[in-house]
């Protein structure tokens, strides 16, 4: 059993001067090493939830526990240094170089110069920026995507066991965004950090999260795997938000690794797709080729299973009575 990294126990947050709680009776557990995305429309309390976890806000009632320890018992600054935090607007220090930005927490922890330098080099490579080109630059001279990468590196500086990300790629073009998403997935696998990632993009939430939390008006509507949410939306709100009834949405957001038929032995089909591919990619592969199975491989190119067209149909789980008329 993996440990519980973060647990919320009937958490409420009501700001002074407002008449409705921004976060209402939220209870949830996030396992160590899990990647949880939080999805919801604007103003539903996603940022508030994250800031409560980071103790930038104190709960009105209820308790939050970090590896079993109520965070109210911890010194806020020391606790926050163990948690990586990436905000939407990045918030890099404009008067500090990329290197100084990334080394902010290591410096607070009193690391010596050479250790800081090595770590910055490591992190810049990790987020896909050439260390020698970028380390002495100032944030003002970076593109939005590069700033996001530096923000991510800064959050990862002391190997946090928990990484909180608040719509980190909101203001980034689609291509760079996909690149950064892949980057985050890879980093999460490498570091095995627990990630809570806020977004209001359904596709992003489903691509990144092993679990997805759907919020509305301060309450959790559903907390489940992407597959579960698509196939069994908990209520009308969830169904509408993720457009669960739409075949195309399902194809777009569901990942093929959810429907793998395990397969040992030498694959005889030439078509291989990556485990992170969407079902739309799979369908397309079936449509353009005449194969019975499609081979699914991991990052290293190792076969991890295969899918048939039948698997795909089952996975889509469309109701018998689906109305195909226009």
């Amino acid at each position: 059993m993996p440990e519980i990294a973060i647990e919320l126990d009937h958490v409420y947050k009501k700001f002074d001067g407002t008449d409705k709680a921004s976060v209402e009776d939220v209870s949830l557990k996030v396992e160590q090493g899990d990647f949880v995305t939080v999805l919801g429309s604007s103003g539903c309390g996603k940022t508030t939830l994250l800031k409560l976890i980071n103790r930038l806000y104190e709960t009105t009632s209820g308790e939050i526990r970090y590896f079993g320890e109520p965070i109210g018992n911890l010194n806020p600054s020391i606790y926050r240094r163990k948690i990586g935090y990436v905000i939407q607007q990045v918030g890099l220090f404009p008067h500090r170089t990329v290197e100084q930005n990334i080394a902010t927490v290591p410096k607070l922890l009193g690391w010596d110069e050479s250790r800081k330098r090595t770590r910055v080099t490591e992190l810049l490579s990790l987020v896909g920026l050439a260390p020698e080109i970028y380390r002495n630059r100032y944030p003002g001279k970076l593109s939005g995507g590069e700033q996001q990468r530096v923000g991510l590196a800064r959050a990862l500086a002391v190997n946090p066991s928990l990484l909180l990300m608040d719509e980190p790629f909101g203001a980034i073009d689609a291509i760079t965004r996909r690149e950064l998403q892949d980057e985050v997935l890879r980093i999460q696998k490498e570091t095995n950090a627990t990630v809570i990632f806020i977004t209001h993009d359904v596709q992003e939430a489903f691509k990144l999260g092993n679990h997805v939390i759907i919020m509305n008006e301060g309450r959790i509507q559903q907390y489940a795997t992407p597959y579960e949410i698509m196939i069994n939306p908990a209520n009308a709100f969830v169904a509408a938000l993720v457009n669960a009834g739409s075949l195309f949405e399902r194809l777009k957001v569901l990942r093929v690794d959810g429907i793998l038929e395990s397969y040992e032995g030498i694959p005889d089909d030439i078509i291989s797709l990556h485990a992170g591919s969407s079902l739309a990619d799979v369908l397309q592969a079936f449509l353009v080729s005449n194969v019975e199975y499609i081979n699914i491989v991991d990052k290293q190119g190792e076969t991890i299973g295969r899918v048939s067209f039948e698997n795909l149909k089952q996975m889509m789980d469309m109701p018998e009575s689906y109305d195909y008329s226009i």
Partner: peptide
């Protein structure tokens, strides 16, 4: 906010 958030 970022400064507080990372533990200053």
């Amino acid at each position: 906010e970022a400064a507080y958030g990372i533990g200053l």
